[in-house]
Design a protein around this nucleic acid. Sequence first.
DNA 1: CATGAATGAGCATTCATTCAT
DNA 2: AATGAATGAATGCTCATTCAT
Lengths: 208, 208, 208, 208
Amino acid sequence: MHSVKPIGKREQTKLNNRESILNAAREVFAELGYGATTVRDIIRKTGLASGTFYNYYKSKEEVFEALMDDGMRRIRPRLKADRIRSRNFEEFIRNAFRTYFDYLASDRMTFQIIRRNPASLRVRMDTPEMIAGFEEIREYIEEDIRDGNVPPVDSEYLMAAVVGIAMEIGDRMIKRPELNATEAADFATTLVLHGFHALPIKTDAQQK
Amino acid sequence: MHSVKPIGKREQTKLNNRESILNAAREVFAELGYGATTVRDIIRKTGLASGTFYNYYKSKEEVFEALMDDGMRRIRPRLKADRIRSRNFEEFIRNAFRTYFDYLASDRMTFQIIRRNPASLRVRMDTPEMIAGFEEIREYIEEDIRDGNVPPVDSEYLMAAVVGIAMEIGDRMIKRPELNATEAADFATTLVLHGFHALPIKTDAQQK
Amino acid sequence: MHSVKPIGKREQTKLNNRESILNAAREVFAELGYGATTVRDIIRKTGLASGTFYNYYKSKEEVFEALMDDGMRRIRPRLKADRIRSRNFEEFIRNAFRTYFDYLASDRMTFQIIRRNPASLRVRMDTPEMIAGFEEIREYIEEDIRDGNVPPVDSEYLMAAVVGIAMEIGDRMIKRPELNATEAADFATTLVLHGFHALPIKTDAQQK
Amino acid sequence: MHSVKPIGKREQTKLNNRESILNAAREVFAELGYGATTVRDIIRKTGLASGTFYNYYKSKEEVFEALMDDGMRRIRPRLKADRIRSRNFEEFIRNAFRTYFDYLASDRMTFQIIRRNPASLRVRMDTPEMIAGFEEIREYIEEDIRDGNVPPVDSEYLMAAVVGIAMEIGDRMIKRPELNATEAADFATTLVLHGFHALPIKTDAQQK
DNA sequence: CATGAATGAGCATTCATTCAT
DNA sequence: AATGAATGAATGCTCATTCAT
């Protein structure tokens, strides 16, 4: 077996540069917050020449979008897998929350962009990839409605609720001293499936 | 009968200026998005001299914070009233969602700040007032736990879920052609109280 | 008698700054040529802060235009005076050329912008003021046509010819070791009035 | 029979590239104006790689010069022919103007470089070729002075006047709705030969 | 307390040019 | 000879902020 697609030195450099910029951006965003970050900050951390940056992205917005899309792109296949291996809506919701909180815990750094900011300004970008991800969830819901597994509810609102819960709980989760994705997923799942009075009881160990 | 609290001409001017700045800011933020707005833009719309601005606020962050706090300050008393007149947790949740979605519908403009942005960048600022508002909700929950009205669940996560649901559903609501705060409140309430299978059935009239 | 319009310190500064910028620009343009000059070069020579420049002009084009207009504005009244005191077209042409070449000789510097450039790039800006000046000449011609002093010729072309002659001869004049505006004016006038065979004979003294 | 000067494939490519660059430059200059045009713009329109450009010219100045020279080089032989076939100075002047205005009408595009510019900045480059062309005219004049056909006038000024008339009238000509090189040539010729009162009368057809 | 011009640090961006491939 | 990504100096310009009036 041999390398199917040999990569020239030029191609390699380009790949590396793109990667460098993304990494630098991730760090700077996490450090300074999105609003305070300037293109120059990213370039500085990159070590590349300023002109080079513009061969890859043309604004910090574009880098940020790439970063967000990157995250979403990693999640969506898992979400699709969740969907396939779940036997019913309950299971899908459970798996999806689990997937999301696990991912969050592992890539904590990217998502801390949100924090740090002096005035704690939170930023979220609805990139095409993210919107597509949300829509996918919505479609799953509609499929289940069609199949009679879910009552004919407002699928957009249900999706929104799921997303909102994931975001806010996820946000609190990564601020806690020790990350417990399972706990967060259980909480979110139960709430969506059965409402607050079915929520897991908090044992002493979980109190701070 | 006389004016209980006579206001000097100077005081009045100060009040007016503060108000002008806030209004100008609200409009500019809604128009340009938070990120793209500069202090200059706000000043320009104000008609005041640039130096004057700094007698009131010292950055766009501060104005934005004031704007957000303003909203929160208007909501919190209502939330407290909701709390008082509610006989149980269920009622409180219902009233709180209702209050929030009604407010959102009435002050749609301020909240559209979030939108508009070319790259659809969403900005949210966790001002002290907002955090306090969230904490208040959390305390209500804990009170109810202590009183045995609510099982001893993770109050922070429950609060986060409620907030997340309110935000995301609220967000979708104001994007819909006709605003229906009742519908949104019913949806959110039922989800939190009994889970998704109890959600209101979508009638034909609601489908597009 | 007293100063009718006392000028505050602020006004004075503004006047001075405008003047400084214009002077700096004139020098830099003369030194580097129009094309090679950058706004920063002008600012540098000015000594003012960079932002200050933009309070007065918003590009080098605008400064250049101001400079050109400035020259034209100084000439036009004299041209009008020439017109008034001339008893016929011949006299007007003679006086006008004379006025122009005199001005050129006195303000040689501004017009040397044109020169110096490595590739000897010549630049001319048709500012509104200049166009107006040309049109004025044209109108004088048309007036004379109406009055029967000049045959009904193509006034635009005649104006163009006069302008072209003035420019090119003027250009050669300021490059000569010693400026002789009278000689240039005589030459141009005779050519326009009677054609080349009536041109003044060049004496030995004038040959180089 | 065989090709007298066989051209290798390499030579052909080089010729093509040179041609491409010149054509691209002509278009870009006409579109953007000289000042606003960058080497990049030219390269982009060319389709060649940026490095390739530098194998042929080393700046936009050089390309512009080549472009101007190109025009001059096409005119000069015709001017020389005019000279030869003219029996006297009058005829030469007439033919020369005619040649120039015809050329202008046919290559209108190149000369519109001058126009277009937002601030109506007019650019003229005195390339060696152009200077040589002007000098040639001057030499013809001096020859005629030596031969006694023309009185001993200031040949530089006369040449300058002819050039100035050609330029300014030419400029107006190409701005007119329908190009009439004959009319322009007649006008210019008569002015130089006999002065303004001999100028062709403008018939009604020519008035707008 | 209002005013608004001056300030200059700092930013985004472009661009001519080089040079390894 | 052609290519096109990398380079980094340099530019135009904005902006928050100050402070004399």
